[in-house]
Design a protein around this nucleic acid. Structure first.
Lengths: 198, 198
DNA sequence: GGCCTTTTGGTATGTTTGTACCAACGAGTG
DNA sequence: CACTCGTTGGTACAAACATACCAAAAGGCC
Protein backbone atom coordinates (compact mmCIF):
# COMPACT_ATOMS: atom_id res chain seq x y z
CA UNK A 1 0.00 0.00 0.00
CA UNK A 2 1.56 3.22 -1.12
CA UNK A 3 -0.86 6.11 -0.78
CA UNK A 4 -4.40 6.22 0.44
CA UNK A 5 -4.22 9.92 1.12
CA UNK A 6 -6.29 12.31 -0.93
CA UNK A 7 -5.06 15.40 0.86
CA UNK A 8 -3.00 17.78 -1.24
CA UNK A 9 0.77 17.67 -0.95
CA UNK A 10 3.57 20.14 -1.41
CA UNK A 11 2.79 23.74 -2.24
CA UNK A 12 -0.73 22.67 -3.09
CA UNK A 13 -1.17 22.41 0.66
CA UNK A 14 -0.16 25.99 1.08
CA UNK A 15 -2.86 26.94 -1.36
CA UNK A 16 -5.44 24.72 0.30
CA UNK A 17 -4.70 26.38 3.62
CA UNK A 18 -5.18 29.84 2.14
CA UNK A 19 -8.45 28.88 0.47
CA UNK A 20 -9.68 27.37 3.70
CA UNK A 21 -8.72 30.59 5.46
CA UNK A 22 -10.73 32.68 2.98
CA UNK A 23 -13.75 30.43 3.43
CA UNK A 24 -13.53 30.56 7.20
CA UNK A 25 -13.22 34.33 7.32
CA UNK A 26 -16.20 34.64 5.02
CA UNK A 27 -18.34 32.26 7.01
CA UNK A 28 -17.38 33.16 10.54
CA UNK A 29 -15.40 36.36 10.49
CA UNK A 30 -11.77 36.85 11.48
CA UNK A 31 -12.46 35.12 14.80
CA UNK A 32 -13.08 31.89 12.95
CA UNK A 33 -9.55 31.85 11.57
CA UNK A 34 -7.63 29.58 13.95
CA UNK A 35 -4.85 27.16 13.22
CA UNK A 36 -7.03 24.23 14.15
CA UNK A 37 -10.04 25.33 12.14
CA UNK A 38 -8.05 26.13 9.03
CA UNK A 39 -6.19 22.83 9.25
CA UNK A 40 -9.37 20.85 9.55
CA UNK A 41 -11.02 22.74 6.69
CA UNK A 42 -8.01 22.28 4.46
CA UNK A 43 -7.70 18.61 5.36
CA UNK A 44 -4.18 18.87 6.73
CA UNK A 45 -2.54 18.50 10.12
CA UNK A 46 -2.32 21.51 12.40
CA UNK A 47 1.43 21.53 12.09
CA UNK A 48 1.11 22.05 8.32
CA UNK A 49 -0.24 25.53 9.01
CA UNK A 50 2.80 26.44 11.07
CA UNK A 51 5.14 24.77 8.61
CA UNK A 52 3.94 26.77 5.60
CA UNK A 53 3.29 30.00 7.45
CA UNK A 54 5.21 31.50 10.32
CA UNK A 55 2.17 32.82 12.13
CA UNK A 56 -1.58 33.18 11.98
CA UNK A 57 -1.13 36.78 10.85
CA UNK A 58 0.90 35.58 7.90
CA UNK A 59 -1.87 33.18 6.91
CA UNK A 60 -4.27 36.11 7.03
CA UNK A 61 -2.01 38.38 5.00
CA UNK A 62 -1.37 35.76 2.35
CA UNK A 63 -5.08 34.98 2.19
CA UNK A 64 -5.78 38.64 1.53
CA UNK A 65 -3.14 38.71 -1.19
CA UNK A 66 -4.54 35.59 -2.85
CA UNK A 67 -8.16 36.71 -2.68
CA UNK A 68 -7.33 40.18 -4.01
CA UNK A 69 -5.29 38.77 -6.85
CA UNK A 70 -8.01 36.32 -7.82
CA UNK A 71 -10.48 39.15 -7.78
CA UNK A 72 -8.34 41.14 -10.18
CA UNK A 73 -8.22 38.15 -12.50
CA UNK A 74 -11.95 37.71 -12.19
CA UNK A 75 -12.48 41.29 -13.29
CA UNK A 76 -10.14 40.94 -16.20
CA UNK A 77 -11.94 37.80 -17.27
CA UNK A 78 -15.22 39.68 -17.08
CA UNK A 79 -13.99 42.42 -19.39
CA UNK A 80 -12.46 39.84 -21.74
CA UNK A 81 -15.82 38.11 -21.79
CA UNK A 82 -17.81 41.24 -22.54
CA UNK A 83 -15.55 42.85 -25.10
CA UNK A 84 -15.51 40.15 -27.82
CA UNK A 85 -19.28 39.90 -27.64
CA UNK A 86 -19.54 43.59 -28.51
CA UNK A 87 -22.06 44.22 -25.83
CA UNK A 88 -23.66 47.59 -26.43
CA UNK A 89 -23.20 50.09 -23.60
CA UNK A 90 -26.94 50.08 -23.10
CA UNK A 91 -26.79 46.36 -22.30
CA UNK A 92 -23.89 46.64 -19.91
CA UNK A 93 -26.13 47.23 -16.95
CA UNK A 94 -27.90 43.94 -17.58
CA UNK A 95 -24.72 41.99 -18.20
CA UNK A 96 -22.79 43.39 -15.28
CA UNK A 97 -25.64 43.19 -12.80
CA UNK A 98 -26.33 39.59 -13.81
CA UNK A 99 -22.71 38.65 -13.26
CA UNK A 100 -22.49 40.44 -9.92
CA UNK A 101 -25.80 39.12 -8.61
CA UNK A 102 -24.85 35.57 -9.54
CA UNK A 103 -21.56 36.06 -7.76
CA UNK A 104 -23.17 37.22 -4.54
CA UNK A 105 -25.95 34.68 -4.60
CA UNK A 106 -23.87 31.63 -5.43
CA UNK A 107 -21.30 32.09 -2.68
CA UNK A 108 -21.92 34.98 -0.30
CA UNK A 109 -19.04 33.90 1.93
CA UNK A 110 -16.53 34.94 -0.68
CA UNK A 111 -17.60 38.59 -1.03
CA UNK A 112 -18.04 38.75 2.73
CA UNK A 113 -14.46 37.62 3.16
CA UNK A 114 -13.31 40.23 0.67
CA UNK A 115 -15.04 43.02 2.59
CA UNK A 116 -13.56 41.63 5.78
CA UNK A 117 -10.16 41.91 4.18
CA UNK A 118 -10.89 45.50 3.17
CA UNK A 119 -11.62 46.41 6.76
CA UNK A 120 -8.49 44.72 7.96
CA UNK A 121 -6.53 46.71 5.40
CA UNK A 122 -8.01 49.81 6.98
CA UNK A 123 -6.14 48.83 10.14
CA UNK A 124 -3.01 47.25 8.69
CA UNK A 125 -1.27 49.41 6.11
CA UNK A 126 0.75 46.34 5.10
CA UNK A 127 -2.36 44.95 3.44
CA UNK A 128 -3.19 48.08 1.50
CA UNK A 129 -0.97 47.35 -1.44
CA UNK A 130 -2.93 44.21 -2.25
CA UNK A 131 -6.37 45.71 -1.92
CA UNK A 132 -5.26 48.86 -3.75
CA UNK A 133 -4.34 46.77 -6.79
CA UNK A 134 -7.79 45.26 -6.73
CA UNK A 135 -9.41 48.68 -6.38
CA UNK A 136 -7.34 49.99 -9.31
CA UNK A 137 -8.43 47.09 -11.50
CA UNK A 138 -12.05 47.90 -10.79
CA UNK A 139 -11.54 51.57 -11.57
CA UNK A 140 -9.62 50.82 -14.74
CA UNK A 141 -12.38 48.58 -16.06
CA UNK A 142 -15.14 51.01 -15.11
CA UNK A 143 -13.32 53.99 -16.57
CA UNK A 144 -12.73 52.25 -19.89
CA UNK A 145 -16.36 51.21 -20.11
CA UNK A 146 -17.66 54.65 -19.24
CA UNK A 147 -15.32 56.33 -21.69
CA UNK A 148 -16.52 53.98 -24.42
CA UNK A 149 -20.08 54.71 -23.45
CA UNK A 150 -19.56 58.42 -23.89
CA UNK A 151 -19.02 59.79 -20.40
CA UNK A 152 -17.47 63.25 -20.40
CA UNK A 153 -15.79 62.64 -17.04
CA UNK A 154 -14.93 58.95 -16.99
CA UNK A 155 -12.51 59.22 -14.06
CA UNK A 156 -15.07 60.65 -11.66
CA UNK A 157 -17.80 58.43 -13.02
CA UNK A 158 -15.66 55.35 -12.54
CA UNK A 159 -15.37 56.18 -8.86
CA UNK A 160 -19.11 56.60 -8.71
CA UNK A 161 -19.89 53.33 -10.45
CA UNK A 162 -17.37 51.26 -8.50
CA UNK A 163 -18.51 52.74 -5.19
CA UNK A 164 -22.15 52.18 -6.07
CA UNK A 165 -21.56 48.54 -6.89
CA UNK A 166 -19.53 48.09 -3.72
CA UNK A 167 -22.23 49.69 -1.62
CA UNK A 168 -25.10 47.82 -3.22
CA UNK A 169 -23.42 44.46 -2.80
CA UNK A 170 -22.59 45.23 0.80
CA UNK A 171 -26.23 46.11 1.32
CA UNK A 172 -27.39 42.89 -0.26
CA UNK A 173 -25.06 40.92 1.98
CA UNK A 174 -26.26 42.57 5.16
CA UNK A 175 -29.97 42.67 4.37
CA UNK A 176 -30.60 40.27 1.49
CA UNK A 177 -33.53 40.77 -0.84
CA UNK A 178 -34.70 38.12 -3.24
CA UNK A 179 -35.41 40.77 -5.89
CA UNK A 180 -31.97 42.32 -5.56
CA UNK A 181 -30.90 41.95 -9.16
CA UNK A 182 -34.19 43.01 -10.75
CA UNK A 183 -35.30 45.72 -8.34
CA UNK A 184 -32.09 47.15 -6.95
CA UNK A 185 -28.88 46.39 -8.80
CA UNK A 186 -29.94 46.54 -12.44
CA UNK A 187 -32.18 49.62 -12.08
CA UNK A 188 -29.40 51.42 -10.24
CA UNK A 189 -26.79 50.57 -12.86
CA UNK A 190 -29.13 51.38 -15.75
CA UNK A 191 -29.91 54.68 -14.17
CA UNK A 192 -26.22 55.41 -13.64
CA UNK A 193 -25.15 54.42 -17.14
CA UNK A 194 -27.90 56.33 -18.92
CA UNK A 195 -27.40 59.46 -16.83
CA UNK A 196 -23.62 59.49 -16.71
CA UNK A 197 -23.05 58.49 -20.33
CA UNK A 198 -26.04 59.73 -22.26
CA UNK B 1 -15.87 60.46 52.62
CA UNK B 2 -18.58 59.34 50.28
CA UNK B 3 -17.19 58.64 46.82
CA UNK B 4 -13.71 58.93 45.48
CA UNK B 5 -14.45 56.77 42.48
CA UNK B 6 -14.67 58.37 39.07
CA UNK B 7 -15.71 55.23 37.23
CA UNK B 8 -19.27 55.28 35.92
CA UNK B 9 -21.86 53.50 38.01
CA UNK B 10 -25.19 51.77 37.41
CA UNK B 11 -26.54 51.52 33.89
CA UNK B 12 -23.96 54.11 32.88
CA UNK B 13 -21.51 51.25 33.19
CA UNK B 14 -23.49 49.21 30.76
CA UNK B 15 -23.25 52.06 28.33
CA UNK B 16 -19.54 52.52 28.96
CA UNK B 17 -18.98 48.85 28.21
CA UNK B 18 -20.85 49.10 24.92
CA UNK B 19 -18.98 52.21 23.86
CA UNK B 20 -15.70 50.55 24.73
CA UNK B 21 -16.79 47.54 22.67
CA UNK B 22 -17.52 49.75 19.64
CA UNK B 23 -14.12 51.41 19.97
CA UNK B 24 -12.31 48.10 20.27
CA UNK B 25 -14.02 46.57 17.26
CA UNK B 26 -13.21 49.64 15.23
CA UNK B 27 -9.57 49.69 16.26
CA UNK B 28 -8.76 46.01 16.28
CA UNK B 29 -11.60 44.12 14.65
CA UNK B 30 -13.92 41.59 16.27
CA UNK B 31 -10.90 39.70 17.61
CA UNK B 32 -10.10 42.63 19.85
CA UNK B 33 -13.41 42.32 21.67
CA UNK B 34 -12.57 40.31 24.79
CA UNK B 35 -13.99 40.61 28.27
CA UNK B 36 -10.66 41.72 29.60
CA UNK B 37 -10.03 44.34 26.93
CA UNK B 38 -13.51 45.81 27.07
CA UNK B 39 -13.39 45.98 30.87
CA UNK B 40 -10.08 47.77 30.87
CA UNK B 41 -11.18 50.21 28.16
CA UNK B 42 -14.42 50.97 29.99
CA UNK B 43 -12.64 51.36 33.30
CA UNK B 44 -14.57 48.63 35.07
CA UNK B 45 -13.76 45.23 36.53
CA UNK B 46 -13.95 42.18 34.29
CA UNK B 47 -16.89 40.84 36.23
CA UNK B 48 -18.90 43.94 35.33
CA UNK B 49 -18.98 42.75 31.74
CA UNK B 50 -20.47 39.42 32.75
CA UNK B 51 -22.82 41.08 35.20
CA UNK B 52 -24.41 43.40 32.65
CA UNK B 53 -24.27 41.00 29.73
CA UNK B 54 -24.75 37.28 29.71
CA UNK B 55 -22.07 36.59 27.12
CA UNK B 56 -19.56 38.16 24.80
CA UNK B 57 -21.99 37.69 21.94
CA UNK B 58 -24.58 39.73 23.81
CA UNK B 59 -22.08 42.55 24.26
CA UNK B 60 -21.48 42.46 20.52
CA UNK B 61 -25.18 42.42 19.67
CA UNK B 62 -25.97 45.30 22.01
CA UNK B 63 -23.02 47.25 20.68
CA UNK B 64 -24.39 46.85 17.16
CA UNK B 65 -27.82 48.00 18.31
CA UNK B 66 -26.38 51.04 20.05
CA UNK B 67 -24.11 52.04 17.18
CA UNK B 68 -26.88 51.63 14.61
CA UNK B 69 -29.32 53.66 16.68
CA UNK B 70 -26.82 56.43 17.20
CA UNK B 71 -26.16 56.47 13.49
CA UNK B 72 -29.86 56.92 12.79
CA UNK B 73 -29.95 59.84 15.20
CA UNK B 74 -26.85 61.31 13.60
CA UNK B 75 -28.55 61.21 10.21
CA UNK B 76 -31.69 62.80 11.54
CA UNK B 77 -29.62 65.53 13.13
CA UNK B 78 -27.89 66.11 9.80
CA UNK B 79 -31.18 66.62 7.98
CA UNK B 80 -32.48 68.82 10.80
CA UNK B 81 -29.32 70.86 10.47
CA UNK B 82 -29.54 71.26 6.71
CA UNK B 83 -33.26 71.95 6.37
CA UNK B 84 -33.58 75.14 8.42
CA UNK B 85 -30.59 76.61 6.65
CA UNK B 86 -32.41 76.22 3.34
CA UNK B 87 -29.38 74.77 1.67
CA UNK B 88 -29.94 74.78 -2.07
CA UNK B 89 -29.83 71.34 -3.72
CA UNK B 90 -26.79 72.49 -5.66
CA UNK B 91 -24.92 73.02 -2.40
CA UNK B 92 -25.89 69.70 -0.90
CA UNK B 93 -22.92 67.95 -2.36
CA UNK B 94 -20.57 70.33 -0.61
CA UNK B 95 -22.43 70.22 2.70
CA UNK B 96 -22.87 66.46 2.77
CA UNK B 97 -19.36 65.64 1.63
CA UNK B 98 -17.89 68.01 4.20
CA UNK B 99 -19.88 66.37 6.96
CA UNK B 100 -19.00 62.84 5.83
CA UNK B 101 -15.31 63.58 5.30
CA UNK B 102 -15.04 65.18 8.71
CA UNK B 103 -16.72 62.15 10.20
CA UNK B 104 -14.29 59.71 8.61
CA UNK B 105 -11.21 61.80 9.27
CA UNK B 106 -11.92 62.67 12.89
CA UNK B 107 -12.52 59.13 14.08
CA UNK B 108 -11.99 56.39 11.49
CA UNK B 109 -12.47 53.69 14.11
CA UNK B 110 -16.14 54.47 14.38
CA UNK B 111 -17.07 53.97 10.70
CA UNK B 112 -14.79 50.93 10.62
CA UNK B 113 -16.72 49.46 13.52
CA UNK B 114 -19.98 50.17 11.73
CA UNK B 115 -18.83 48.32 8.62
CA UNK B 116 -17.64 45.48 10.81
CA UNK B 117 -21.13 45.33 12.28
CA UNK B 118 -22.62 45.25 8.79
CA UNK B 119 -20.55 42.21 7.91
CA UNK B 120 -21.50 40.48 11.11
CA UNK B 121 -25.15 41.14 10.28
CA UNK B 122 -24.53 39.37 7.00
CA UNK B 123 -23.78 36.27 9.08
CA UNK B 124 -26.18 36.71 11.96
CA UNK B 125 -29.76 37.41 10.88
CA UNK B 126 -30.49 38.48 14.45
CA UNK B 127 -28.52 41.65 13.84
CA UNK B 128 -30.28 42.54 10.61
CA UNK B 129 -33.18 44.35 12.19
CA UNK B 130 -30.86 46.93 13.72
CA UNK B 131 -28.78 47.56 10.63
CA UNK B 132 -31.88 47.56 8.43
CA UNK B 133 -33.31 50.45 10.46
CA UNK B 134 -30.11 52.37 9.89
CA UNK B 135 -30.16 51.58 6.18
CA UNK B 136 -33.78 52.72 5.94
CA UNK B 137 -32.96 56.01 7.64
CA UNK B 138 -30.24 56.64 5.06
CA UNK B 139 -32.58 55.83 2.19
CA UNK B 140 -35.37 57.98 3.60
CA UNK B 141 -33.11 61.00 3.89
CA UNK B 142 -31.58 60.52 0.47
CA UNK B 143 -34.94 59.98 -1.19
CA UNK B 144 -36.43 63.12 0.34
CA UNK B 145 -33.45 65.16 -0.74
CA UNK B 146 -33.47 63.80 -4.26
CA UNK B 147 -37.19 64.32 -4.61
CA UNK B 148 -36.80 67.91 -3.49
CA UNK B 149 -33.94 68.34 -5.93
CA UNK B 150 -36.15 67.23 -8.80
CA UNK B 151 -35.23 63.59 -9.39
CA UNK B 152 -37.80 61.77 -11.48
CA UNK B 153 -36.99 58.43 -9.81
CA UNK B 154 -36.06 59.29 -6.24
CA UNK B 155 -36.39 55.71 -4.96
CA UNK B 156 -33.80 54.29 -7.35
CA UNK B 157 -31.61 57.34 -7.04
CA UNK B 158 -31.64 57.08 -3.27
CA UNK B 159 -30.24 53.57 -3.52
CA UNK B 160 -27.57 54.87 -5.87
CA UNK B 161 -26.56 57.78 -3.67
CA UNK B 162 -26.52 55.79 -0.43
CA UNK B 163 -24.53 52.98 -2.02
CA UNK B 164 -22.08 55.43 -3.56
CA UNK B 165 -21.44 57.12 -0.25
CA UNK B 166 -21.06 53.76 1.46
CA UNK B 167 -18.61 52.57 -1.16
CA UNK B 168 -16.58 55.76 -1.26
CA UNK B 169 -16.18 55.86 2.51
CA UNK B 170 -15.20 52.21 2.59
CA UNK B 171 -12.59 52.99 -0.06
CA UNK B 172 -11.24 55.91 1.91
CA UNK B 173 -10.94 53.72 5.00
CA UNK B 174 -9.06 50.98 3.21
CA UNK B 175 -6.80 53.15 1.08
CA UNK B 176 -6.87 56.66 2.55
CA UNK B 177 -6.16 59.67 0.39
CA UNK B 178 -5.49 63.11 1.81
CA UNK B 179 -7.48 64.71 -1.02
CA UNK B 180 -10.49 62.47 -0.46
CA UNK B 181 -13.04 65.20 0.14
CA UNK B 182 -11.92 67.53 -2.63
CA UNK B 183 -10.93 65.06 -5.31
CA UNK B 184 -13.15 62.06 -4.70
CA UNK B 185 -16.17 62.52 -2.50
CA UNK B 186 -17.40 65.99 -3.47
CA UNK B 187 -16.86 65.55 -7.23
CA UNK B 188 -18.67 62.23 -7.13
CA UNK B 189 -21.63 63.63 -5.21
CA UNK B 190 -21.79 66.77 -7.37
CA UNK B 191 -21.76 64.62 -10.44
CA UNK B 192 -24.49 62.39 -9.05
CA UNK B 193 -26.72 65.23 -7.90
CA UNK B 194 -26.46 67.21 -11.12
CA UNK B 195 -27.00 64.18 -13.32
CA UNK B 196 -29.76 62.50 -11.34
CA UNK B 197 -31.67 65.65 -10.48
CA UNK B 198 -31.04 68.13 -13.23
C1' DG C 1 -30.51 52.84 62.67
C1' DG C 2 -31.31 47.70 60.36
C1' DC C 3 -32.56 44.93 56.17
C1' DC C 4 -32.70 43.45 51.59
C1' DT C 5 -31.58 43.87 46.67
C1' DT C 6 -28.48 45.37 43.36
C1' DT C 7 -23.98 46.11 42.10
C1' DT C 8 -19.03 45.61 42.46
C1' DG C 9 -14.09 43.65 42.55
C1' DG C 10 -11.11 39.84 42.99
C1' DT C 11 -10.22 35.40 41.97
C1' DA C 12 -10.84 30.61 40.24
C1' DT C 13 -11.68 27.17 36.55
C1' DG C 14 -11.98 24.68 32.51
C1' DT C 15 -11.39 25.48 27.53
C1' DT C 16 -9.28 27.22 23.42
C1' DT C 17 -5.63 29.32 21.44
C1' DG C 18 -0.86 30.04 19.04
C1' DT C 19 3.02 27.85 18.37
C1' DA C 20 7.08 24.89 19.46
C1' DC C 21 8.88 20.36 19.26
C1' DC C 22 10.15 15.92 17.38
C1' DA C 23 9.96 11.47 15.39
C1' DA C 24 8.88 9.60 11.15
C1' DC C 25 8.17 9.64 6.20
C1' DG C 26 8.79 10.45 0.76
C1' DA C 27 11.25 11.49 -2.96
C1' DG C 28 15.20 12.49 -5.18
C1' DT C 29 20.41 11.95 -5.72
C1' DG C 30 24.86 9.68 -5.32
C1' DC D 1 21.47 0.71 -1.51
C1' DA D 2 22.25 4.75 1.93
C1' DC D 3 21.96 9.65 2.68
C1' DT D 4 19.75 13.96 2.75
C1' DC D 5 16.39 17.48 2.57
C1' DG D 6 11.97 18.95 2.47
C1' DT D 7 7.66 17.56 4.42
C1' DT D 8 4.20 15.48 7.56
C1' DG D 9 1.49 14.18 11.80
C1' DG D 10 1.10 13.85 16.64
C1' DT D 11 1.70 15.88 20.74
C1' DA D 12 3.07 19.32 24.30
C1' DC D 13 2.71 23.64 26.69
C1' DA D 14 2.24 28.26 28.19
C1' DA D 15 -0.78 32.05 27.51
C1' DA D 16 -5.20 34.04 26.80
C1' DC D 17 -9.72 33.29 26.93
C1' DA D 18 -15.00 33.12 28.49
C1' DT D 19 -17.26 32.69 32.27
C1' DA D 20 -18.52 31.16 37.08
C1' DC D 21 -18.15 32.15 41.81
C1' DC D 22 -18.26 34.71 46.10
C1' DA D 23 -17.48 38.04 49.60
C1' DA D 24 -18.04 42.73 50.21
C1' DA D 25 -19.92 47.19 49.31
C1' DA D 26 -23.64 50.49 47.99
C1' DG D 27 -28.33 52.16 47.70
C1' DG D 28 -32.94 52.25 48.64
C1' DC D 29 -36.75 51.36 51.89
C1' DC D 30 -38.79 50.40 56.47
Amino acid sequence: MYQTREAPRGTARRDAILRAAIELVGEGGPDALTHRAVAERAGVAVSATTYWFSSKEEIFREAVALAAQEEVERFERLVLDLAPRHVAPADWAREVSAALAADVQSDPARPIALYEFLLEAARQPALREDVARWEQAQLRLAEAGLRAAGSDDPATDAHVVVATITGLILGQLTTPRSDFEDQILRPALERLFTRLAP
